[in-house]
Every structure is written in C-alpha cells, then in structure tokens.
Design a protein around this nucleic acid. Structure first.
Lengths: 138, 138
DNA sequence: GTCTATGCAAACCCTTTGCAGCCAT
DNA sequence: ATGGCTGCAAAGGGTTTGCATAGAC
C-alpha cells in the first residue's frame, strides 16, 4: 500500500512540472525517454495514473481525444482547441454552473465544464471574436 | 452526396425513436439484429454517425465511456451515472455558463457541460441529496 | 527480505476503414 | 446505370494488464 519513489516517477513528475504543453502520455514517454531510455510506455501510464490519484498532477480528458496531463496545480482551468487538440490555460475563476434541483431519483454530485475553441495557431485571422460561446448538448 | 433510405438506416432510426435507454452502438446493434440479422456492427456505426450528422439523433459522449445515442430531439439534457454509465434525461432549461472574456489568442466558441451523479439503481439509500454539485476540473 | 514498480508484450475496448458486391435512386 | 451503402474482417488509437524480474524500503 506504500508508494515508492522510483527514478521513473521522479523524472515523469519533474518533466510535467516544468512543461507547459499539457502533454499526452505518449509525449511524456518521448520526453522522459531522453533521460531514462529503457522506460516503458506502460510505466508512464501507470505513474501518470498514480500521480493523478495522489493529486500531484491533473488529468485533462475529452471524449475521443487522447488524455492530457498537467503538472501545474495552481488554480486555473483549460480550453481545448478543436482543431489541434492543444490545451490553453485560462486564469481566473472557472465558470460556475448552478445545477438545478435534483430530478426524480438521480443524485447529481458533480459536473464538468469543457471549453472549446480555436487557438492562436489554428484560427486564420487575428480579429477578436466578440460573439458568445454556444452550449454543445451532451 | 445524396442520402439513401436503406432498410438498415430505417430500422436503426425506428429503434432509437422508441427507445429511452440511450443505447451504445453495441446495444443498437443487438436490438437491430433481431429485425435484420445480417446487419453488421460497422453499418450500425456508420448510420449512427450519418443520423447524428443529419441532426436526426443526438450523440452523448463522455471521456473513457462508450458513446451513447438518443433518438429524442425534444429539448432536454442529460446526467450520467458515474457508477453504471446510464443516462438520465433532465427536463427544463440546461444549466448555462457565462464564458468570460476570451483570453489572449484563444477564441472560445463553445462549451460542454456534463452532469454526473448516481442513478436510482446505483445509490444505496433513498435519502434526498440536498448538497450542491462540485465542479470537476477539466 | 519484502513487496511495489518495472519492462516487455500481448490484450483490451471502442471505433474506423478497405474492399468487392449490392441495391436504392 | 450509377454510386452510396452494405457485410465482412482487418486495422486503428489509446490504454490496460499478466508476467517474471529488478529495485526501493
């Protein structure tokens, strides 16, 4: 039940802390392999899950997209570029939702808000958006 | 570029319209096979995507979960049971989010809200919830 | 010495796709 | 007759897992 401080875990953690690109497991694997060439992708996955479960890193998930990871624990939230999948950090308080009354029999205990859009490198013009964001039914 | 009204598409559509269980592709496949025993799972997937693209059905997606489909186009939204994955229909206006100012370079064009909780069959006691829902960071 | 973590590789789940023939138009 | 749709089966991506061994405690 104890956790061991292996080389692999430390190198993964260090990489995530200094990285700001919200890498996928594969990208972590590629980066960490420069330091530990014999590390396996399975070990990367296992450690990423362990670190996320321990609250040391954050998981960023989106349907149909590869999971991404974030070593920055400062309060912030994310927006995902629908074109390239990259994650943009947003500061300030995350948008809140007031969930209405719990409907018959179902107990709502949490919610996830996912912001979507286009990042700098992916939208053609530089003009400001102005328009509001649309709710995507889920 | 034209769309053809095949037997397969019609049977899938009919099943989704009369079903209230928000089936996965596999569940649609199993149901439709009772009527068209030679239909293939690939055809089910292709038609579900075509129907969703045409706006005839709705897709319900959640990270790490099998996609579900909904033939009910009346305005409503969904909550997902974190225990069994089943979808509960919620009436009334979906919770809205006021997305703040677009941050540097990123153009927010949409957002997805996913409500999570426990359904009738999955929570032990029958006591009412009372507490508010927690934001799950994404 | 114990027992978790590792590397390797195979398996997993869900979904998509290439192909040759079929059938709705 | 045309070409979108089908069944089949194989491949795909992302992730998990079984196993024997290595290594942290």
């Amino acid at each position: 039940m104890e956790h061991r401080n292996t080389q692999q875990k430390k190198v993964i953690m260090d990489f995530l802390r200094q990285s700001h690109v919200h890498p996928t497991a594969e990208e972590v694997y590629d980066a960490v392999r420069q330091i530990l060439p014999r590390i396996s992708l399975g070990t990367v996955y296992r450690n990423l899950e362990l670190l996320a479960a321990a609250g040391a890193i954050r998981k960023i998930e989106s349907p149909g997209q590869a999971r991404r990871f974030d070593g920055d624990l400062n309060p912030h939230y994310h927006a995902r570029c629908v074109s390239c999948g990259r994650i943009k950090d947003l500061d300030g308080p995350p948008p809140a939702v007031s969930v209405g009354n719990t409907p018959g029999g179902f107990r709502v205990t949490g919610y996830r808000i996912e912001l979507l859009g286009t990042c700098e490198r992916c939208h053609p013009s530089a003009g400001a958006p102005a328009g509001g964001a649309d709710l995507i039914p889920v």
